[in-house]
């Protein structure tokens, strides 16, 4: 297999690490993490301005050239996701949208049915749609049909740092879906991100782990390297696991061939 660049909606990405911008202690730490890991795609959210307090413009802290993807967090159904997407587009900051429709506040699981509906509407309006979804093959197929640019299955619960709990189901999407598969949510350590990439994911998006680390820039860089390593391992066609040993050294005695004892 060759190391071809990741292409989403005609745009080429050298880095396969995407970074969320929530939960950082301050904008400086966020900007340092973006720069340190070399990510070329970050997610942002939209919220009402607090008219009583000063609010910094986060976009001023995102280096130029990084693709901005607005998420539709806060949307509880397709209609609200569509409204948020249209607002984001009106800002003049592009038309890349991560659809996130959630109406369960305990587990924050995405509503796949509403996500498909929103994808259909927004893709038809010309948005580049990156839907966050629960890894289900039928949903993924419906998202392809609806015009999604990628499919973004969750690894585990948002912000949980539990890693690739949905591993086997993500593998099905990797095998069956002809769109970039970006593992999103729950990825709490570079080793978990590498695991997703070894499995054949096209990219990984992380946020909480990096933003809440003691040194976000250092962890962001570690994530980027782990993702690159995992991708290389995938391309190398990793050997499968075995249940019995397979010697790495010649199976003869040191000087004389001694028959093995049973």
């Amino acid at each position: 297999m060759t190391n071809s660049p990741l292409i989403i909606a005609g745009k080429e990405f050298k880095s396969r690490f995407f970074l969320g911008t929530g939960k950082f202690k301050n904008k400086k730490e966020m900007a340092e993490a973006i720069t340190a890991c070399g990510t070329q795609l970050v997610t942002v959210a939209l919220r009402r301005i607090d008219i009583e307090r000063h609010q910094e413009n986060i976009l001023e802290h995102i280096p130029p050239g990084v693709t901005l993807v607005t998420n539709t967090s806060g949307a509880r159904n397709a209609q609200e996701a569509v409204r948020i997407a249209r607002l984001a587009k009106a800002s003049g900051c592009g038309n890349w949208i991560k659809i996130e429709v959630i109406n369960d506040s305990k587990y924050l699981l995405p509503d796949n049915v509403e996500t498909i509906k929103a994808t259909e509407i927004l893709a038809a309006e010309g948005f580049v749609v990156l839907p966050y979804m629960y890894p289900d093959l039928y949903t993924a197929r419906a998202l392809v049909k609806a015009g999604a640019a990628t499919v973004m299955p969750l690894g585990s619960l948002i912000g949980s740092n539990q890693g690739l709990k949905t591993r086997e189901f993500i593998k099905i999407l990797i095998d069956e879906i002809d769109l970039p598969i970006i593992v999103d949510a729950g990825i709490g350590a570079p080793s978990q991100a590498a695991e997703a990439m070894e499995l054949g994911a096209d990219a990984v998006l992380a946020n909480t782990a990096v933003a809440t680390a003691g040194d976000p820039a250092l962890l962001a860089k570690a994530f980027a390297q782990a993702i690159e390593a995992g991708h290389m391992a995938y391309l190398s066609q990793l050997p499968t696991q075995r249940t019995v040993a397979s010697a790495s050294s010649p199976l003869t005695g040191f000087l004389y061939d001694i028959p093995a004892k049973n």
Binding site: T43, A45, R47, T70, I158, G159, N207
Partner: peptide
């Protein structure tokens, strides 16, 4: 009237 702006998000 709604006044909306970008914030950090994942």
């Amino acid at each position: 009237i709604e006044l909306v702006a970008f914030v950090g998000g994942g």
